[in-house]
């Protein structure tokens, strides 16, 4: 018959007051508490960053860009979040209207990685044009603005471009999508 493997019981657990085996480790405990404090400071910093919008969805994340003559102004967020709805708005000046319509070319990255869900108002036509899409809206007067409802589908750094066909003004921006 097989014999079970054994080992003698040793008094290996450290004692308190020379009588009670507890296995307390004061040096470790103090080190751990220091570590714990560090972690909590780190956590506090993360929360502060989140509140301020460094991780997106906060005041610091908001940004805007406009062309030299102010024909096109872009309100967007520098930091987006994965699968989270967000709105990018483009405002047009009077020069943007040509032949009673506004034509805007957007790069494909707005559609795919940034996950454009819908455009408000809906464009009258959308034409595949190179590595992007050309949208057309009929327009009578300004101010006009168009909103893109985004829900990014890929984390990481993303680049997008919008171009106004009437003046050829281009805005290119990098945004960061948090996982």
């Amino acid at each position: 018959m097989a014999t079970p493997r054994t080992r003698p019981v040793e008094d290996s657990i450290s004692k308190v007051g020379n009588e009670l085996a507890v296995g307390e480790d004061l040096a470790f405990q103090r080190r751990w508490w220091r570590f714990e404090t560090t972690i909590w400071i780190l956590f506090a910093l993360i929360l502060a960053a989140d509140l301020s919008g460094i991780f997106g969805r906060g005041p610091l994340a908001k940004a805007s860009a406009k062309t030299a003559d102010g024909t096109m102004k872009l309100d967007y967020e520098r930091v987006l979040r994965y699968e989270t709805p967000d709105v990018m708005t483009i405002h047009f000046g009077p020069n943007a209207i040509q032949n009673g319509r506004i034509e805007l070319w957007v790069s494909e990255s707005v559609i795919k990685p940034l996950g454009n869900q819908r455009i408000i108002p809906q464009p009258k036509s959308s034409i595949l044009d190179g590595d992007g899409i050309l949208y057309t809206w009929p327009a009578a007067s300004h101010p006009n603005s168009v909103s893109f409802a985004l829900a990014p589908s890929a984390p990481g750094s993303q680049k997008f471009t919008v171009r106004l066909e009437s003046t050829g003004d281009t805005i290119t921006r990098h945004v960061w999508v948090m996982p």
């Binding site: 308190v16 296995g23 480790d25 470790f28 405990q29």
Partner: peptide, 24 residues
Amino acid sequence: GLMLDGAPVVLLMHGQWRTEMLEE
């Protein structure tokens, strides 16, 4: 394992509170 689970901590001993432990 010590990091994952921590070590037991003595809170009271021979009629004396270990104040540091209680607070932490």
